[in-house]
Every structure is written in C-alpha cells, then in structure tokens.
C-alpha cells in the first residue's frame, strides 16, 4: 500500500488516521491469510475469525460478508474492510450505523424489513444459541416487535420506522459500535515496522 492509498483510505473513512489504517492492515493481513494465503478475506476466513470455526452456515455471517463485499466478487478487499469498519467507529455518525443495520436485516433487500425476515433471523439466532422456543412465544416476540416498530401497521418496517424504532431503543445499535476502533494502533503495534508516516 502506498502512502497515497493509505491517505485516501484514511480520508474517506473520516474516522481513521493513516497510522490507524496501517494498524487495521495488520489485522486485515492476519484474517486474510488464515486459510487461503492470497491477501483477500474469503467468507470462510471471516467465519473463522468470528466463530473460531470455518465450517457451517450462519445467516448473519452471510449478511455481514455481503455488506462488506461492496463489489460483490466474493472477497473482502482491504478498501472494503476499511469502508465497512469505519461505520463501527465510536465516532461514526449514528445515521450510518442505523442504515447499515437496516441493510443487514433487510435480508431480501427489498427496502423493508418484513415479518418473514425477522422470523427467519429469530429462528437463526435460536439455532445458533441452541435455544428452543414454542411457536406461540416466537409469534408473541414478533407481534410485540412489530407493534412497537411497524407504526403504520403494514406488516413491514420501512427505513423511517426503523430509524424511529432504534432511536427509542438505542441498545439495538450496541453491536454497531466497536470500542476497539478507538485504539487500534495500540492493539496492532506491529504496524510501526511498515509505517509510511510517523504521527
């Protein structure tokens, strides 16, 4: 990566300094060489980093990977990694976090989060955590959620409703902020061996 690339990425992110982009490159290198040593993050590598196993299917991993992979070419390039992670910075605009979460949960990318999609995600999280719920309780969870979020009662959550909903329940955005990003140069100090700029 040239200094120009680093500076452009830092500038585009609006959150990271050049040194922080370099520190994130250390993390990127580690993930992108974990299974296929080609300097690109494949889904199995993201899965290994998040789940400590590279096998099995996970709906949420698929969604995260899909949103990171802007070019939709089946790998996460470093630029895409920085773009997506910048949304998770503690200082990133909350509007960006709200939109990113909406896109995550809008499984079929119809511009709405539909009841069917929420059902699918709840079933997926129950399977992931090996919890069983009765159909009645599952329906009750969905009813309650839609009573609260779907203010125009059309059976789906539009972007505006989503925004009002998460602003009323800010804890739903907790996983959209990574406190680690405040201090990446300390977490990955080895960037200093390759740095293009000294702060």
């Amino acid at each position: 990566l040239s200094f120009r690339d680093l500076a452009r990425l830092a500038d585009e992110s609006r959150c990271f300094s050049v040194n922080e982009v370099e520190a994130l490159f250390e993390l990127y290198k580690k993930i992108s060489c974990s299974i296929i040593d080609d300097g690109l993050i494949h889904k199995e590598e993201l899965q290994l980093a998040l789940f400590k196993t590279s096998s099995g299917q996970n709906l949420f991993l698929d969604r995260v990977f899909d949103l990171f992979d802007e070019k939709k070419n089946g790998v996460i390039e470093f630029e895409e990694f920085i773009h997506a992670l910048s949304v998770f910075h503690p200082l990133a605009p909350v509007e960006d976090k709200i939109n990113f979460a909406f896109r995550l949960y809008d499984l079929r990318q119809t511009g709405f989060i539909e009841r069917e999609e929420v059902m699918q995600m709840v079933i997926a999280i129950l399977m992931e955590s090996h919890v069983e719920l009765s159909d009645d309780l599952l329906e009750a969870i969905l009813d309650k959620t839609f009573e609260d979020a779907d203010t125009d009662r059309d059976g789906k959550i539009c972007q505006e409703e989503w925004k009002e909903f998460v602003l009323r329940h800010p804890n739903l955005l907790k996983n959209m902020t990574l406190p680690y990003l405040r201090d990446v140069t300390t977490a990955f100090p080895s960037f200093v061996f390759n740095t293009a700029v000294e702060d």
Partner: peptide, 25 residues
C-alpha cells in the same frame, strides 16, 4: 402474558453480528 423480548434484541446477540471478536487475540 410474561414480558416478551424484542426480536432485534435477540438477533443482535448473534456471534456473526459481533465484530468485536475480530479484535480479540
């Protein structure tokens, strides 16, 4: 009826959505 959780509260606990794991050594 007992208090019921918000669906998105449940969903947001997925390991796949908690990217902090990437930074854990």
């Amino acid at each position: 009826r007992p208090a019921v959780m918000n669906a998105f509260e449940l969903i947001s606990t997925s390991q796949g959505l908690n990217l902090g794991t990437l930074f854990e050594k």
